[in-house]
């Protein structure tokens, strides 16, 4: 739980003489304990935005603040789950999680291992602790990555399309797992979750930040009560209404993009 604030943030990628503006004048506040989904079409700058929050890339103009302090790098109060599988391929599932924990505590090896085991159990991988990432399926690897991100008990959880490459069924399981782990905390973590999927965004978030190219197009509050489960959720007429407007917003953007390209051709 921590407050995130972006003020007049612009970011340009520079390589040699080339300058590519990826974010332009972004203003966004995220409250402590809020679950925010960032949604938008491919290439609009979602990963760039998250990269700023991760502390891996830095704004060209404007500010990115956490609890009022500018972000100068990565930090132990933040955890990240990448879109790509980001486990260390030479470490077993347990060692991957333990490695993360060991960087932020001075606890004994025994305690660190216990924490790692505990979180792997939570994500349902009790029987796979000693397997290498290559011996796990994509969904399992992503569960290990989630366990690693949560095991350090961060205040802020940053997730970049974490379920992007996972089949629909596993995806639903992982969404529910994430919600239950997030909801179980007394002090809820602030979550910024990037996705392509409107249904996923509606199911998970308190608020949806809808991005167009380089900018935030609109912010939409998701009013539904928690806990939300898939079954009750998708039959709710209010949900259908919101989903319709979100989808039309999404595809209008896409249509405009395609239209733009046609003009170019």
């Amino acid at each position: 739980m921590s407050r995130i604030e972006l003020r007049n943030l612009s970011l340009a990628y520079e390589s040699g003489n080339e300058r590519f503006l990826a974010l332009e004048n972004i203003n966004l506040s995220i409250e402590s304990g809020e679950f925010v989904c960032v949604i938008g079409s491919s290439g609009c700058g979602k990963s760039t935005l998250l990269g700023v929050l991760e502390g891996l890339i830095f704004p060209s103009f404007g500010e990115a603040l956490i609890d009022g302090v500018p972000i100068t790098g990565t930090g132990p109060e933040r955890s990240v789950v990448f879109q790509h599988y980001s486990l260390f391929p030479w470490m077993s599932a347990k060692r991957n999680v333990a490695f993360g924990v060991r960087q932020v505590t001075s606890a004994s090896t025994k305690d660190v291992n216990e924490i790692a085991e505990d979180f792997l159990l939570k994500v349902g991988l009790g029987g796979f602790m000693d397997k290498l990432p290559a011996e796990l399926s994509g969904g399992m690897q992503q569960r290990v990555a989630i366990a690693r991100a949560l095991a350090v008990n961060p205040k802020i959880l940053l997730m970049d399309e974490p379920f992007g490459a996972i089949d629909a069924k596993t995806r639903v399981q992982l969404q529910e797992l994430l919600l239950s782990l997030w909801g179980a905390d007394k002090e809820r973590k602030t979550v910024v979750f990037v996705t392509h999927d409107t249904d996923e965004a509606l199911l998970l978030s308190d608020r949806i930040v809808f991005m167009g190219p380089r900018h935030i197009e609109r912010e939409i509050t998701v009013p539904f009560e928690r806990p939300r489960s898939e079954a009750t959720f998708f039959s709710n007429p209010e949900y259908a209404e919101l989903r319709k407007s979100l989808v039309s917003l999404f595809y209008r953007g896409v249509a405009e993009n395609i239209g733009g390209e046609e003009v170019l051709i």
């Binding site: 891996l56 990240v80 980001s86 260390f88 490695f99 960087q103 932020v104 350090v152």
Partner: peptide, 20 residues
Amino acid sequence: RIIDSARILNVKTNVMLFQV
């Protein structure tokens, strides 16, 4: 991606060099 994964785990330089 390997380097970024280590960075976001806040590894110290010696850990980055010899354990990653």
